[in-house]
């Protein structure tokens, strides 16, 4: 494992820790998109089916379980926790994610490495992850007062994706026969989705202003 991959995974882990801490400490999920969290739950369940079929490393298995468990915890809090569920921006979080799920699934049926249930679901998870942050970005746009932690959560997630691109470049240069075109293209699309957010995040940080995204 190279330094970019490890750094990317750590950013992903930190993003989730930031979100868990924010919701737990403030007893509020204001500004957090339940739709994005549910999309991530679908992504992780479909991708990590190989937990049952193959063992890669203790690191790999542990991270997969953490991602699954934390995402379901957040969803549980937002839907069912007595105090937290009241703070959910239900009226603002209106992104119709079936318009993401269906096209991604159809694309995975057509464009995959092997036409088997496991492989199609895995490919579906790759495509869906690329667009899973969209409901969260739309919700941030509608939130006037983005709190620091929610902004940091999205920034850490975006950094994780950017670092994965460096990881792919590094692996492509150092490992023979390392190619995964579908993952690369989806990953680049996913990173592009964040560019606009990065611009405003860094600008607000440099000007010492509160983060807000123009509608």
């Amino acid at each position: 494992m190279n330094i970019f991959r490890l750094a990317g995974d750590m950013m992903h882990l930190f993003s989730i820790i930031v979100l868990l801490l924010k919701i737990n400490a403030t007893r509020s999920c204001r500004g957090v998109s339940l739709k994005t969290q549910e999309l991530y739950a679908i992504v992780f369940v479909c991708r990590y089916l190989d937990l049952f079929t193959s063992f890669i490393s203790l690191y790999n298995t542990t991270m997969k379980l953490i991602f699954l468990l934390s995402t379901f915890t957040i969803i549980y809090w937002m839907r069912f926790h007595k105090v937290i569920r009241v703070t959910y921006d239900r009226e603002q979080d209106t992104f119709r994610y079936q318009f993401l799920i269906l096209p991604c699934f159809l694309l995975a049926l057509v464009l995959n490495n092997e036409f088997s249930a496991m492989e199609v679901l895995w490919t579906f998870s790759i495509y869906l992850e690329a667009v899973a942050i969209l409901p969260q970005l739309v919700l941030l746009q509608r939130t006037n007062n983005i709190d620091n932690l929610t902004g940091n959560y999205v920034f850490l997630l975006g950094s994780y994706r950017a670092l994965y691109i460096l990881n792919w470049i590094y692996r492509f240069m150092t490992e023979p026969n390392y190619r995964q075109y579908l993952v690369w293209i989806s990953g680049i699309v996913q990173t592009i989705v964040y560019i606009d957010f990065f611009y405003y995040y860094i600008r607000s940080w440099r000007n010492n202003e509160k983060l807000s995204l123009p509608a």
Binding site: H12, D50, S54, I56, S57, N60, W122
Partner: peptide, 10 residues
């Protein structure tokens, strides 16, 4: 070949 390699990422 390469298939297992792909799946080692998260």
């Amino acid at each position: 070949p390469g298939q297992e390699l792909v799946k080692d990422e998260l």
